[in-house]
């Protein structure tokens, strides 16, 4: 519980502004709104599929602001050459969902 969320405040601000620009409904973004953004990263679709699996923590097919931050974090790390983990490490789980 005391582990700080690995998504830094300045990154969250960036991800939040992207989130808001995608016109969330009820604070949620559906898969068809998030998909083109992730595809824009040019990462392989199987990698993006895993990013989605890890980000959609409640598996409702939509991402809230915290889940979206996780997705964007993983995409940015992948673009820097870091492998996308097979399961979400505890520091990456948003504090609101522990």
């Amino acid at each position: 519980v005391d582990i700080p969320w690995v998504v830094k405040p300045e990154e969250r601000m960036k991800f939040d502004s992207i989130f808001d620009s995608l016109c969330p409904v009820g604070g949620m973004l559906t898969g068809d709104k998030v998909k083109p953004v992730l595809l824009n990263s040019k990462l392989p679709v199987d990698i993006l599929g895993r990013v989605w699996e890890l980000s959609d923590l409640d598996r409702d097919g939509m991402l809230d602001k915290d889940e979206f931050s996780v997705a964007m974090y993983l995409v940015y790390r992948a673009l820097e050459g870091e492998p996308v983990p097979m399961s979400l490490p505890p520091p990456l789980v948003p504090p609101s969902k522990r």
């Binding site: 898969g31 998909k35 599929g49 989605w52 097919g61």
Partner: peptide, 13 residues
Amino acid sequence: QYPAGGSSTNPFL
């Protein structure tokens, strides 16, 4: 290949 839950919720599958 992906964790349980099948994933009709995953837009990339």
